[in-house]
Simulated assay, not measured.
Amino acid sequence: MEEIYAACITYEPGIIDYVDLKKLTEPVWLLGKQYRVHEGDEFEKLNEDIVSKPWFTYRKQFSAIGDSGLTSDSGWGCMHRCGQMLMAQALIVRHLGREFTWCSDDPDQTYLSLMEQFDDRPECRYSIHSIAIEGSLLEKQIGQWYGPNTVVQILKRLAEEDEKNDLVLHVAMDNMVIKKEIRKLLRRKRKNEEDNRRSPILLTVPLRLGLSEIIPTYFEKLKAAFRMKQSLGIIGGRTNHASYFIGYVGKELIYLDPHTTQIYKSPREDSTFHCSRPSRMDFTQLDPSVALSFYIESESDFEQWCTDARQVLLEPEKDALFEILEEKPPMMPYVDIELDDDFDASLNERDRIYTSDEEFELLM
């Protein structure tokens, strides 16, 4: 395990060893939770929270992806892995709650069942194989890197056909969250459900926050996003280095880094799917292409999210990260599919989803 943990630390300018966190007097925010590491057992609680987050990295020696012959995603699959980490964390919150903690000696069986869906095998719903092959339907070659917008679009398509989970992934395009669309999704029932259970939403908001660098006025907004109770973090990175950002402390982001190549193992052998030493980097190193992510449980939760977002993410208006609108404006440049009553859509309809990354990122 020591080798794995050490591999999580990236020694580069601006990257700081996790062990320094114990010496901090500033609060640490991790997906909506605050930790004051210099008080009581807060450091131990923070460490427990971090190690409970799924950590997906490059793997090698898995079965070939389609006809590509590729048996490793090293060098190209970092954003694929970030998408997996985001989706896995969303499913954990859905089925086990935000307070879930992972125990290596006695892993939760529901947790293991969720993780199996990310196994690097072609038949698994959110495997590297499924993500890469679904991407090929969007004219992304197997073995080609993705940006934040592409990976959430692909995960959305995979989630639409997920018979095991009732989580809906919604992509808010063009910097707009449309309330009418979200409410409609929250009011739907999964097909074949006899009860009145509704489908929670993984809300993703792809953004471009500058040209080559993030405009500094957005840093405080991004911090505020991590403080929101619905936060599921941010996928993005710095140039040529995609990562899953789960929190911040002071002027630094805390993130899980997929750039470690491990031999293929099933998630049931899951000590290699957890990391106790995430990396840290200054906000100024973050690439301007990101996707903010939030877990929305219900309509009331969504209304509270809208209220909080307007206060901390959208004010003042000139520095707003995105817009929250009641209805979609006319002449939108993309098609947002409205699913029919059995919560499905035809392939022809889904193929019309806007997926261009030209406006978003250059991440590898």
Rank of each mutant, 00 (worst) to 15 (best):
M79R: 04
D341R: 13
D166C: 10
L286A: 09
N348G: 03
I154W: 01
M364D: 13
L96V: 05
L347E: 13
L70I: 03
E349G: 01
I4C: 07
Y18W: 14
S346W: 11
Y295R: 08
Y334T: 14
S298D: 00
L46A: 05
Y295D: 03
F322R: 03
L209M: 01
K223E: 12
A224K: 05
D166A: 06
N47M: 09
P278R: 00
K251Y: 10
I201H: 01
I353E: 12
T239A: 06
E338S: 02
K265F: 02
N192D: 15
A6K: 15
I4V: 07
H274K: 04
V28C: 08
L339N: 07
F62R: 12
G236L: 02
I234L: 09
F43G: 07
L185F: 06
T272L: 15
S346R: 01
L211N: 15
P148E: 01
V171C: 11
Q311R: 13
K53T: 14
E194Y: 09
M332N: 14
F43S: 11
L321A: 03
P27Q: 00
E26V: 09
W145D: 00
E39I: 15
Q262W: 12
Q153C: 02
Q34D: 08
I50D: 05
P316L: 11
S113H: 08
K184D: 13
T150P: 01
L321C: 05
W305I: 00
P27W: 08
D287T: 13
D108Y: 05
E361Q: 06
L209Y: 11
T260A: 15
L155C: 02
V205P: 01
H95W: 02
G66K: 05
D105Q: 15
V168T: 06
G77L: 00
R238K: 11
D105V: 08
H170D: 09
K318I: 04
C275Q: 13
K180H: 11
D174K: 10
K180I: 07
K164Y: 11
Y58W: 12
A242T: 07
K223A: 04
L186W: 12
G14V: 10
E3K: 13
I214R: 00
G237P: 05
D357F: 04
E213D: 08
K60R: 13
K229L: 05
I131H: 00
A345C: 10
I214D: 01
D49H: 04
L222W: 10
H38L: 02
I4L: 09
E297L: 08
P267M: 05
T217G: 09
W76G: 01
Q153D: 00
W145F: 04
L24G: 11
S74D: 01
T150N: 02
A88H: 00
V93M: 09
D41T: 07
F360L: 15
L256G: 04
P54D: 03
D308S: 04
E220W: 02
N196M: 12
G83I: 01
N165Y: 09
A309G: 10
Y334E: 15
Q141R: 14
Y11K: 11
T110C: 10
T10M: 07
G83M: 12
D308N: 10
Q61F: 13
Y35I: 06
R310M: 06
P258T: 03
F226Y: 07
L347Y: 05
E99D: 12
D17M: 08
N196D: 09
G237R: 03
I16F: 14
K179F: 06
D340W: 14
M228L: 15
G66L: 09
E3F: 10
Y244F: 03
H241L: 04
E48Q: 14
D341W: 05
